[in-house]
């Protein structure tokens, strides 16, 4: 820093030898004229060297949305993974609900009309309280959840942040794939993206009815193009 180099030596602390580097003091007498001027000029040379367009490191968002690519592990939005046939793998075991630190997941189950077993009714995920800590994904023994990088979730109405992640209520893919085609239809009941009971966490909000049913289709928790309040192409 001042021309003196840091010195290596050994100190004894608590009976143990510790290798240290001792940083030099600034010379106590005050600044040296020539060295000061040179340090100022060095600083100016550095900033001057950055004064060209090729050194710009910032990106212009949202103009660069088409080429923007986030890492695959980036955590922004929870999704139920679909297998090849378009079925989720959730069995309604509620381990994710237990793992979530702040109660942002509520798994509602029902007794399946065909299988007569516990199965997923609604998978409610509260994006307004989720801290994307990934504990739910880690806790799921069936690998049914994933965190995707869909970060454009700004909405004008808070209720749109409470998602139902599953598109149908029914047994997981492992059961559905083994059933016959006709039976499969009876096992599954469609669910919309925002029609879940709101609010959760034991608080009743009077005069807040559940949102009306979204247009059917890809209501898998991702805002679809038909929604007036959501950003278009958020899924692209």
């Amino acid at each position: 820093m001042t021309g003196e180099k840091p010195k290596r030596s050994v100190r004894i602390l608590g009976g143990r030898e510790v290798p240290v580097i001792v940083m030099p003091r600034l010379p106590g007498k005050g600044p040296h004229v020539a060295r000061s001027a040179i340090s100022l000029l060095k600083g100016m040379r550095l900033t001057g060297s950055y004064f060209r367009p090729s050194k710009v490191v910032t990106r212009q968002y949202p103009e660069n949305r088409k080429t923007l690519k986030l890492p695959e592990r980036f955590r922004a939005r929870l999704k139920l993974i679909d297998d090849a046939g378009g079925h989720h793998k959730c069995t309604g075991c509620k381990l994710c609900q237990k793992a979530c630190p702040n109660d942002s997941i509520r798994v509602l189950t029902r007794k399946g009309p065909v299988t007569q077993k516990n199965e997923l009714d609604r998978y409610i995920w509260r994006q307004d309280s989720c801290i994307v800590c990934n504990a739910c994904v880690q806790a799921c023994p069936f690998g049914a959840l994933e965190m995707t990088g869909d970060f454009e979730s700004a909405v004008y109405d808070r209720r749109l942040l409470i998602h139902t992640l599953n598109r149908y209520a029914g047994p997981p893919a492992s059961v559905l794939d083994q059933a016959a085609e006709a039976e499969r239809e009876k096992m599954m009941e469609p669910r919309d993206a925002y029609g879940g009971p709101t609010p959760m966490n034991g608080q009743a909000m009077p005069e807040v009815p559940p949102l009306l049913a979204a247009p059917p289709g890809d209501g898998e928790g991702a805002p679809s193009a038909g929604k007036p309040d959501n950003k278009e192409g958020a899924d692209s």
Binding site: F51, P53, K55
Partner: peptide, 13 residues
Amino acid sequence: KVSAHFQCRLGPM
């Protein structure tokens, strides 16, 4: 603009 380019960014665009 000048301050932005010294700081590796673009400034008002």
